[in-house]
Nucleic acid binder design. Structure first.
Lengths: 98, 98
DNA sequence: CGGTGATGTCAGCACGCGCTGATCAAACGT
DNA sequence: ACGTTTGATCAGCGCGTGCTGACATCACCG
């Protein structure tokens, strides 16, 4: 669970991209239409999402389809679930301040 | 599930704070010792974490103890779990590009 | 083969944001 | 009461990073 992955998913524009991709696979032109962002802007965001393994690209002729990698999202979910679980136990412990 | 909450948790320093607080409740002086950051730096981070509801502060005389709010972490986990679940179905759908 | 449209890349700019240092308030110990 | 310590707040600085615009590339179509 790298910080880079969490930071990549926490950006508003990229979070929007991820949300759109949870419905169906989309090519960049769809994302341009849905988000209103420029193609170069989206291309930069998609490159970052690729670099952290959150999405993968499938060139299809002139277009490029993007899809999510569910395992990665599942890993993020598990990460926060573990933090939540441990934090429940932590409420019972208080380190003395001396 | 606000973007602000996700962004707050994605910052490396704040992620470290959260991780430390999953073990036990700590006051700011402990966090200073554990992270090596300055108290004003930590105070700023803690204020942001408070503003998004991730932690709560309990003044105890001269000290201030901080603890996580497990429900919030659980909500974040559930958020990503839902994305992961939906994304699995999305792999079977591909919007035509015309 | 040119023309067009889809996508990627990069340099440059601007804004956001994290870090610092100074200051202040409150609480404890002497 | 006074000094010390904890912690919060704020202004200012600097760096990271997202956005843009121009250019390059590749695939399709006439």
């Amino acid at each position: 669970m790298t910080d880079e992955l969490l930071r990549a998913l926490a950006d508003p524009t990229r979070a929007r991209i991820v949300e759109l991709l949870t419905v169906e696979q989309l090519c960049v032109c769809h994302l341009v239409a849905e988000t209103g962002a420029t193609s170069s802007n989206l291309s930069n965001h998609l490159r970052l999402l690729r670099s952290v393994g959150a999405v993968e690209a499938e060139p299809a002729g002139r277009y490029t389809y993007y899809r999510l990698r569910p395992e990665v999202l599942e890993a993020v979910s598990a990460h926060y679930a573990a933090l939540a679980s441990r934090s429940r136990l932590a409420l019972a412990v208080k380190r003395p301040c001396d």
